[in-house]
Write a protein that binds this DNA or RNA. Structure first.
Length: 154
DNA sequence: GCCAACGTTGGC
DNA sequence: GCCAACGTTGGC
């Protein structure tokens, strides 16, 4: 079992939105590193910290899990989509995504400053300066520590 | 709104 | 293949 942190701007799609719809296709990711994680390393059942980025405040809002991994991203072939990629070949799709399922919203929102203050989270990717990757691998210990901070037992 | 960090593009 | 220019992310 692997652990991930996935970023979403809450103005666009928040943990509450995920709770409402239960499952969501994580399409529109146009970064090769993030794609490779979804294509090669994610497995159904993997656990996810749902991170609110570009938010007031930014931080971890809850827990989700992977429902399906390595799904061909349909938006790359949709001419009306803002994620349309004319250079992607349907015979060999360039962009791969995954589907996530709602698990739990944190009792206590865990803001970025609190993540940075917690010595047990040293080395966690999201607290490093300039870390823009929207899908990040996570240590089990870090996942569990953040859940504890959020008041949730997983 | 600013700007640092970093990914991508394209000229050469 | 290098690297400058440009675009985007995301914290503040």
């Amino acid at each position: 079992m692997a652990y991930w942190l996935m970023k979403s701007e809450p103005d666009v799609f928040s943990i509450d939105d995920l709770k409402k719809v239960k499952n969501e296709l994580w399409d529109g990711v146009r970064n090769y590193q993030a794609r490779n994680f979804m294509r090669d390393e994610m497995k159904p059942g993997d656990q996810v910290l749902f991170y609110h980025s570009n938010a007031k405040p930014s931080g971890v809002a809850g827990v989700a899990k992977i429902k399906k991994a390595a799904v061909v991203d349909p938006s790359q072939f949709d001419k009306k989509s803002e994620y349309y990629d004319p250079k992607s070949n349907p015979e060999d799709p360039r962009w791969i995504c995954c589907e996530v399922t709602y698990v739990k919203k944190f009792k206590t929102f865990v803001g970025l400053p609190e993540l940075k203050d917690n010595k047990n989270l040293d080395g966690m990717m999201v607290i490093k300066k300039g870390q823009r990757l929207s899908i990040q691998p996570l240590d089990k210990e870090h996942f569990e520590e953040v859940c504890k901070m959020g008041g949730v037992n997983v």
